[in-house]
């Protein structure tokens, strides 16, 4: 396990069921046991021996393979699946405590009357967040990453089996609360949406630039608290645009609902028309 941040990927739990994800076992894992194989459609590795090296018994083999190739192949498959289903997938990322789950509860409540909505919740432990979503009547699948500090695309592929997605639907993935690691992992989403609350620092986009570069949208949350804080929203937004000039930024309050017309309108403008009168998709059990 990494002692820097505690991340490690021995196994994850999807709705409480343990899934082995070890990629480091010496013995080759069978297809059933191995959670992170390359998808069948992944192009073969272009490895080839090129020249003899200093040691007679050794040779250099060119590899030229991206470290994220396996994850990205799964992400492409997830994206194809969303496209075929007509589902808009949004990956919500933020620090712990930014109000992500509260924002999500208000968002799915606002959307569920108009179109099918589903949620995949990522946390290291507990099903608290999925429980909060399910209490609104919207189906949710909880992925527990154990020591893992981010979601990866194969976990989403697995979790999707527990959600019935339909045309015009919106799937929200609430990533593990962490403004660093989830930046690198494509899950197949249409957009990463970063949430930053006004109780954090204005310079957060400069401190964690990878995430603000990976995101297309930033929601500045908890703006109802602005009268009580010294937070400079303009400065925060300028910092975010320093890292990513094309960011769309919206100011919202998940508590008061301020800014939600714009946020829900943004989602509506990107989702496909709902296939049938609005009903939450049913979770398969």
């Amino acid at each position: 396990m990494c002692t820097t941040c505690g991340c490690g990927t021995d196994h994850v739990h999807i709705d409480g069921v343990s899934q082995l994800v070890s990629r480091t076992t010496a013995a080759p894992l069978s297809g059933e046991e191995r959670f992170f194989p390359m998808p069948a459609s992944t192009p073969a590795v272009g490895a080839m021996a090129v020249h003899a090296h200093g040691t007679p018994a050794s040779r250099i083999v060119q590899v030229e393979r991206d470290l994220l190739a396996a994850n990205d192949s799964w992400a492409r498959r997830n994206r194809d699946r969303f496209r075929a289903l007509g589902t808009l997938c949004l990956n919500l990322v933020s620090s712990p405590g930014s109000g992500k789950t509260t924002l999500l509860v208000r968002t799915v409540t606002g959307l569920a009357a108009r179109r099918p909505v589903g949620v995949i919740e990522g946390d290291q432990q507990t099903s608290n967040d999925a429980d909060r979503i399910r209490a609104t009547g919207v189906p949710a699948v909880q992925v527990n990453t154990g020591k893992g500090c981010h979601l990866e695309a194969p976990m989403i592929a697995r979790a999707l089996d527990g959600l019935a997605l339909t045309a015009g639907g919106v799937l929200f993935i609430e990533n593990v609360g962490n403004l660093v690691c989830p930046a690198l992992f494509d899950l197949g989403e249409a957009h990463k949406v970063a949430i930053l609350s006004v109780t954090e620092g204005e310079d957060k986009p400069l401190k964690y630039p990878d995430m603000f570069r990976a995101a297309d949208v930033v929601l500045v949350n908890k703006i109802d608290l602005l009268p009580y804080l010294d937070f400079d929203v303009e400065l925060c937004e300028a910092n975010a645009r320093r890292v990513n000039p094309s960011l769309e930024i919206m100011r919202v309050s998940a508590k008061s609902g301020d800014g939600f017309d714009e946020w829900l309108g943004w989602i509506e403008s990107r989702a496909r028309p709902a296939a049938s009168p609005a009903r939450g998709s049913e979770a398969r059990t």
Partner: peptide
């Protein structure tokens, strides 16, 4: 972020 080569 790439593995370029290995000595085998």
């Amino acid at each position: 972020l790439r593995v370029r080569e290995i000595e085998l």
